[in-house]
Every structure is written in C-alpha cells, then in structure tokens.
Write a protein that binds this DNA or RNA. Sequence first.
DNA 1: TCGAGTTGTCTTCCATGGAAGACAAGTTAG
DNA 2: CTAACTTGTCTTCCATGGAAGACAACTCGA
Lengths: 175, 175
Amino acid sequence: MDDDRIADIVGQWGRERPDLDPTPLLIIGRIQQLAAVLDVALRPPFAAADLGNGDFDVLAALRREGEPYTLTAGQLSQRMLVTTGAVTKRVDRLIARGLVSRSVSAADARGRVVGLTSAGVALTDRLIEEHLANEAAILRGLTDSDRRTLERLLAAMNRTLASRGFGPEGESQAR
Amino acid sequence: MDDDRIADIVGQWGRERPDLDPTPLLIIGRIQQLAAVLDVALRPPFAAADLGNGDFDVLAALRREGEPYTLTAGQLSQRMLVTTGAVTKRVDRLIARGLVSRSVSAADARGRVVGLTSAGVALTDRLIEEHLANEAAILRGLTDSDRRTLERLLAAMNRTLASRGFGPEGESQAR
DNA sequence: TCGAGTTGTCTTCCATGGAAGACAAGTTAG
DNA sequence: CTAACTTGTCTTCCATGGAAGACAACTCGA
C-alpha cells in the first residue's frame, strides 16, 4: 500500500544527508508529481479530439472570454503564460484544423485577432464539459471541507511565491 | 491584491457556462500553475551550475541512493519517471560534464551502470542543500499545521489518481 | 511631420523529451 | 543446445516550447 514515491525519496535523503531537512519534498515534490500525473489523467478528451493540451488552452481562453470569442495574440500569450512564439504555433495548428481564425486587428495593424470559429466554439463547449467532469471525478476523494482547505493552502503558496517575485508572470497553465 | 489568475478563470467560466461547475480549477488549476511556478522559482541553483532540471534529477537519484552511488539506466528511468531514451540523453550530457560515468554491467551485459563521479557527488551535495533551502523558504508562509494538512491532502489526491489507474507509472518528477 | 524609440507578432534556431524501432544479450521450452 | 521470446538500452524521428532577433506598425517629442 505504501508505494509513495515521494515518501521514499524523503526517506533516502534522511538516511544519506541527515543534516538536511527533506520534508519540503512532501509538499513540493508531491505538487510536481501531481501536476505531471494530472496532465496524463486529464489528457484523454483532448487526445481523442487530436489536440495538444496546449492547443486546448487557446480554445478555452477564447471561449471563456465570451462573445465574440476573440483575443489578440498578445492577450493569449498573457492568459496562457507562454511566449508569443508559442502562441503563433498553437494558433497555426488550430487554424489548420479550422477551429480558430486569425485576422489583422482593425485598431492596430500589428495586432492579430484570433477568434473561435463556430466549429471551435462547438468543440470547446463539448470538451470543457468532459474536462471539468474529469477534474471533479479526481477530487471526489476529498470532502467539501478538505477541498476548501486545499484551495486555501494552494492559494497561500501562490501568494508566497508571487511575493518572492515568482508570480504567474512567465509560467504555468490552467486550462 | 486580487490578481488571482485561477479565480478569474473560474469567474469567466461561471459567467459563460453557468451550467457547469468550474470550481475544480481552484484546486487542479492551482496545482498546475504552482508546479510551473515552482520550476522557475527553484531553477536558479541548477541554472548557475549549467544543469537542466532534468539533469539534476539524475544526480539526485544517484546521490540519495547511497554508496556506491550507482543505478542502471532502467532504474533511473523508473525513479525519474521518464523514458529510457530520456535517460540516455541526460546521462550523455552529464558524462560530457564529467559528473557521472557509464559502464557495462558486470551482471548483465545489456545493462549500463551509471555512477556519480567524485565531482558529481560534490556538486550534488552542494546543490541539494541550496535546493532544499529554497523549498523550505517557499513553505515558510505556511504554519506547521498547514503543512501537515497540505501533505495529507496532496497525498490523498495522489492516492485517488493512483486508484484510477494513473499512479506514478509514467509521469512526474520530484528532484 | 520626422526620426528615434517602442510594441506586437512572427521567424529561426535550439533544447528537451516521448514513441517506436533496432539490437545485442538473456532466458526458456523442448 | 537451440530457436523463439523477452529485456535493457540506445537511436532516430518528431513535437512542443523557449530565446532572441527580424520587422512592420505605432507613438511621441521636438
């Protein structure tokens, strides 16, 4: 039952470097492991639609923005916390699939406005349901009270990191 | 003060798809975001040593194994939860840096035994101290009680995922 | 209004890691 | 002992994303 990878690692360090405190790994290591496992666990719906996780990020960002489901490349870059170069590539792939369109901004000829096509809206609306259902299923093992506690503690960690200068200004995703 | 990306996303979904419950994102989205931010926040010591995060994974796995600081390529693959192909590449890079060595296993001529050089041990011992200190600093915003709670809840999530068939048999890291 | 910045996006190049196949070395049934 | 299978690692090819530079378009002060 105790195939807890992280606990094992902590045990090993405790033996090899008893002068150090390896217990931060119980939290930080687990968060990292969870993120990786979650990516795999939540992937199937996107894989079935032949979409990369990152590509769905684009669709979701546009969809939740509300009508007319448009954002500039720069805005997408901010919301998804990836470089504009990555945005270009994600959008290129989605255009090839007919899920989004790109046009020159009316207000600023440098800007590119990316918008969901009707096919894009339809697909996103379908996928987000599955996606949230999967997330809910994963959290089913926690009580309501546990969930609230977990939210609070994770938010607290986020704030700590932000205050140390590592706010979400260059990382992450959320889908 | 409320530049909470995830909370904003939840709010947007709540407006656009009031039929769905977006609150799982408050946990899962935050975990994903945290993992990404943590990677950046914890990177400096490795970057200073001109090491990829993944490369340090190899050094740490060998070091915490204890003397004689050796593992086969396959064992490294299991501990780090990456493919053997990735192991080959990581080890190649570390060999070029003189931090590990690779030799044919005495017991099984197919096997390759990877071992820390003395330079590798020295560097790893130095980096792990910095690394754990950084992790401890990040957790400084949480009380002891909060930490225990967080450990428990994260471990619970891990178990839930494992029971759904997504145990760490194909993902993650822990450094 | 002109020229020096600045900005928004794309392009190019690079690094990392997965998937799948190649292969030598081990194992095992007969 | 041998043929067939399995295993451990490496190789090749591919996909994704970052970094840095290219560039056109915008802004602003003089």
